[in-house]
Every structure is written in C-alpha cells, then in structure tokens.
Amino acid sequence: MAGTKSDLQVDLEQSLHMYQQMAKIRAFEEKVNELYQSAKMPGLAHLYSGEEAVAVGVCEALRRDDYITSTHRGHGHCLAKGAAVDRMFAELLGKEAGYCRGKGGSMHIADPDSGNLGANAIVGGSAGIATGAAFSAKMRGTPQVVACFFGDGALGQGLLYEVMNMAALWKLPIIYVCENNLYGEYTSVGETLAGEIGARAKAFNIPAETIDGQDVQLVYMTMQRLVARARRGQGPAFLECQTYRYYGHHVGDINRAYYRSKEEEREWTTTRDPLQVLSARLIAQKLTDASVFARIEADVKAEVDAGVQFALDAPYPDAREVEQDVYA
C-alpha cells in the first residue's frame, strides 16, 4: 500500500512549487468558468477544480520528456505538465495562438513540447495511445515513462483492459492513473462499477495502489516510486487517486442535487481541499507561513489575468486554416 504520512519527505521548495501549480490550475479553471458564464468561450468545458493534487503530484514525478495522455477534464493535466496559461486560454477561445491553433479546443489540447500527447474527448480513448507511447519508449530504448490519466468512467471501456494486458505482458513503462472522482457525468460509480478498482489491474499482475488524491505530497511520493520502477524496466503500475470535482460535469451542469448532495460537496470542498491540505500542513509543521501562500495566489492570479487578456486579444485563425493539417 501507499506510504503513510510519516514516510513523506518532500522538501519545502518542491512543496511550494506544487502548491503554486495547484493554485494556477484553480485560478485557471475559475477564469474558464467566468468565460463560460459571460459567453466569451465557445462550447463547454469540464473543470478540474478540486482534483489539482492528482495532476500536480503525478506530473511532479515526471520529467519534461516523459509523456502524458489526458482526458476531457484535462486542463489541469496540461498545465501540470508544463503548458502555458496564455496559449491554453487561446485554445479555449478558438484562437490561432492556441496550442492546437484553435482546432482542438478544451477537450483536445496537445503540447508535444511538454510531453503532452493530447487530451481526448472519447472516454478511455487515450489508453491505447498512452500504452503505445510506452511501447515506443521501450522500443526506442529511451528512459521515458508514460502517465495515462483517465476517470473512473473509463473503467467501463474495454480498450483499457486490452492495453493493460499487453503492458503487463511486455513490461511497458506506463502508470495508469485513475482519477476516481466518484461520478461519471451524472451517475455515481456505485451504479457503474462492480468489484474493486485495483483488482482489475492486479488480475494482470500490475501492482495497484489506492491513495488519497487530495494530498499532493502523497500523490507525488507514490508516483515517484512507481515511475522509478517503470524506468528500471519493471513494468506498468496502476494508481487510483480518490478525488472530487468541485463543479458540475461541465460548466453548464449547475443543478446537481438529483445525483449528488450539497452536503457531500461541502464536505469535500471544506475538509479535503488539496490546496488547504497542503498549506495547513506546511504551516503546522512550521515550515512556512500564510503570507507565502498569499503571495503565490497573487502571482498565479496575475499570470491568469494576463493570459486570458492575451487570449481575448488574439486573432482567430484565418479561414484558410480550415483545410490545413488534415494530413501531415
């Protein structure tokens, strides 16, 4: 099982860096919600607020040239892996300066420069790509490792089991990161999942761990161990992170009472907030004080404000773009 709190040893600088990354994602998503509500953003977006510790803890244990694949709820993964706020916003607004020149939008952000092979709007759709990237890393003889992010909902998809079987057979350097936020759209996992999550991986002899996904230090430490193992050629691992999305399935999902209670939402947002968990711990350990976090919050807010302004001012792609990039 995962490390207990006493094993945790993450130095302060790194902890503060993770805090900053989480705060950046939080501020980014708040802004996305605002853009939606003020009708400045086309379409919908699936906010990552509440789940920041998963993306940040996982990506902190990766190198820049390690790969990730992401999901429809992918802004946090992209930012944690190193995407820039301004170009992310530009993509969300369909602008030429966006990571995909406006062609991808919220659910398809890819940034190969930071090792991001792309978000995916097909649930579980990236499991093949991620496993293929791990396969290729092994074939090419590089030390690269892959983190494949997916939600609890993707456990319904057969593709995942096909590729986990091959990843285990061929000892591929991949970590399957299941973000269990208790719901797929408007249905709770209790109604869609039989058996235990980790047992699925164990059936393939893939080591599986279930951890508190709201504790970024724990996610990071656990992931570091699994990544080191994969890099040594010891094969895949499966990491279930228990987490919670603060908002609806997407920005338009406002009335949620029919599928989850206000009390449950309050419980998670007030007692298990990943930013608060980390800041409270560091302060209790007397490693730092509240002013440090206030400064970080101000910094990321400035970054997000500047980024969104950049995107709002940026031009749309030229009409000729529509037929470009269909083929290499």
Partner: peptide, 15 residues
Amino acid sequence: LDVPIPFSPALEDLT
C-alpha cells in the same frame, strides 16, 4: 467539408 470538425467558431462554421 472533408476535414475533422474544428473547434474554433471561425473555422467550424466554414465546414
């Protein structure tokens, strides 16, 4: 139009 549907409204409406 024979392209994957683009996200940007500036492009999607052309398809």
